[in-house]
Amino acid sequence: MAATGTPRKRRPILTILGLLALLGVLSVALLRIVPPPMTFLMSSRAVSGSGIDYRWRSLDDISPRLVEAVIAAEDAGFCDHFGFDVEAIEKAMRDNARNEERGRDRIRGGSTISQQTAKNVFLWPGRDWVRKGLEAGYTLMIETLWGKRRIMEVYLNVAEWAPGVYGAQAASQHWFGKDADALTNREAARLAAILPSPRRYQAASPGPYVRRRGGRIQSAMGTVRNEGLASCVLG
């Protein structure tokens, strides 16, 4: 009797999982054409008192220099991979293992722009394994249903660039007092330079670290442009 009852017990679980998967696909399909609403990160920051400055802009209204800068800084293989950069993940694991052996608490990430977009739009902040598994699933879905240009557009619009400041337009106004389509090479590079720690660093009047990192990114932007590393976005 127990053996015959087991499949019946599994049916509600499988039904629930199927419904959750369907909702996930539908949400990804919907956000392919409409701007994402407030994200989990935006909500949590707002509750903590950071406020929200979130201004959606079409990719056509964002400087191509910023696209080149974030590819140079965050994911040089963006146009070539299907959501995951295996080499970057392996390197991050090696570096993190070395840091742990040396007693350092510094954690290096190996996430692509696609993974960061999936995490920022659909998931909560954190590093637990459940969230990482969902992140992988959403990454595959946005790569399949959105394509590279839409992924970049959403990424540039939901990324945090200062406490409570989200997206290229709000960041450009906050740091440089101009619209996102008017960013210069240097300004774009400095915005990309602060992405890993936007609550710690400043893009305007930056300190030595952001100046050095911004300079390296600005140099790498030429490589991105000349080698077509942003061609899947900029054409």
Rank of each mutant, 00 (worst) to 15 (best):
I16C: 10
A69E: 06
A76R: 14
I62H: 05
V70Y: 02
L23F: 08
R11G: 01
T15D: 03
T15H: 01
G49H: 06
A72T: 10
R32N: 15
V25C: 15
F78N: 03
T39S: 11
Y54C: 11
D80Y: 07
L30S: 14
A73K: 05
A21D: 10
E74A: 04
D53N: 11
I33A: 08
Y54F: 13
L23N: 11
I71V: 14
S27W: 00
V67H: 05
P36F: 02
L59Y: 00
K9T: 04
L17M: 08
L20R: 00
F82M: 02
M38N: 05
L31E: 06
G18C: 08
L30M: 09
F82A: 07
C79I: 14
D60T: 03
V70K: 09
R10D: 05
R11M: 06
S50R: 09
A72P: 11
G18W: 07
F82T: 06
G24H: 03
I62N: 03
E68L: 06
S63Y: 00
L41W: 02
L14M: 07
S63D: 04
D75S: 09
S50M: 07
L22S: 15
G51W: 14
L22C: 14
V70Q: 05
D53F: 12
L59V: 04
D80K: 15
E74G: 03
C79R: 15
D60Y: 01
G83E: 11
A73H: 05
A69I: 09
D60F: 00
S44V: 11
L20Y: 00
P36R: 12
S58W: 01
L22W: 06
S58E: 03
L26Q: 04
A76Q: 14
A69G: 07
V70D: 02
A76M: 15
L22I: 14
G83W: 08
G49Q: 05
